[in-house]
């Protein structure tokens, strides 16, 4: 453990900045979703409505991802590719697994 005390005010400022940085895109995304909801293009994860192609992905999700965590409850299709690439590196998923799980998350 290599902990050192840093300036608390500075640390709080960093926390506040991160919250703002995190909140701004969320607000932006929220507006975007409102706009999207008026069109049929809006999609979120629909695991129950998985077609045949998603079955392999669902199976691989259970075999790999679910060992550590559950699926995000509401994963935007805009993020699914990034999430899967992140997890491909973190969990050493094969390229095929990544593709199948992406189909499951983003049918």
């Amino acid at each position: 453990m290599k902990m050192r005390t840093i300036d608390r005010k500075f640390c709080m400022a960093v926390v506040a900045s991160l919250c703002i940085v995190a909140a701004l895109p969320a607000l932006s995304a929220s507006k975007a979703q409102q706009q999207d909801s008026q069109t049929p293009a809006k999609q979120t994860v629909q695991r129950d409505a998985s077609p045949e192609t998603a079955n392999a992905g669902e199976k691989k999700f259970k075999q790999n991802c679910s060992r550590c965590h559950d699926a995000p409850q509401d994963l935007s299709t805009h993020l699914s590719g990034t999430v899967l690439r992140h997890m491909r590196v973190r969990a050493s998923l094969s390229e095929q697994d990544e593709r199948d799980i992406l189909k499951f998350l983003n049918p």
Partner: peptide, 23 residues
């Protein structure tokens, strides 16, 4: 750290629909 994170935000180009950078 703050600088590196800010740099990433500014640098990342527009990406395809599924590959939006995330926090």
């Amino acid at each position: 750290i703050g600088f590196l994170w800010a740099l990433l935000f500014c640098w990342i180009p527009a990406l395809s629909a599924q590959d939006t950078p995330l926090i």
